[in-house]
């Protein structure tokens, strides 16, 4: 079997339950908050989109865990760094897509049950695109930041954290949605904001690849 696929499957198997568990807690929390909101305010504010903004950061945390925890483990079972990166990136992309679907879906359901703020197909699509790009940006940023520290140690890596976090910063500035699923800031047009974030993501993906392609496998996460 292809080692990349094995990496992807193992990581999914390992972290699936934790992710689904977290998401479940979120959903329950939002439902409770929605019920409370409906009692105290009219019209009730939407809660989902406040909370859903967190998903994109989770993807960043996943990337950090992959590099600090799993890279070493996979090289130890005879997988190349390249194959590990490919397999792990597949998980990052899958998680990003899943959240990108989950966010507008949750928003739509909340709207349907509860009224709340306006929701339309166009809003949903914008939320999908914004979440997908933000998640990818966050994954790549987490990966590059962690890889820098893994490779160059805490101090050397710190210098690289700033460029590494650029895609996440760009997504936060240009693609943060408000409670109605609207892009909060209007510095750029939405398509341009997407493009800027994707370019930053691609550039930092190159940085991350460069950091990891021949990295020394250390005994612990912090070198």
């Amino acid at each position: 079997m292809n080692p990349r696929r094995q990496v992807t499957e193992h990581l999914l198997r390992t972290y699936k339950s934790a992710l689904i568990g977290f998401a479940g807690v979120f959903v329950v929390g939002v439902v409770i908050a929605d019920i409370v909101a409906a009692r105290v305010a009219d019209p009730a504010p939407g809660i989902w989109m406040y909370v859903a903004i967190a998903f994109r950061y989770w993807v960043g945390i996943i990337a950090v865990i992959f590099i600090s925890n799993n890279l070493r483990q996979f090289v130890a079972v005879g997988v190349t760094r390249r194959d590990f990166m490919a397999g792990a990136t597949a998980v990052g992309v899958l998680a990003s897509v899943a959240f990108a679907v989950f966010v507008p879906l949750g928003h739509g359901i909340e709207y349907a049950i509860h009224g709340g703020s306006g929701f339309s197909a166009a809003t949903g699509f914008r939320e999908f695109a914004a979440t997908l790009v933000s998640c990818l940006a966050s994954f790549v940023a987490g990966s590059a930041a962690c890889a820098g520290i893994y490779r160059f140690g805490a101090w050397g890596g710190l210098a690289l954290v700033i460029p590494a976090l650029l895609p996440a910063a760009a997504a936060t500035i240009f693609l943060t949605t408000d409670s109605d699923g609207q892009i909060a800031a209007d510095h750029l047009s939405f398509p341009l904001a997407l493009v800027v974030c994707l370019v930053a993501t691609a550039a930092v993906a190159v940085l991350s690849h460069w950091e990891l392609k021949d990295v020394t496998i250390r005994r612990s996460a912090l070198g």
Partner: peptide, 8 residues
Amino acid sequence: FENRELMR
């Protein structure tokens, strides 16, 4: 180094 067959 980074040789899939050998590392396995």
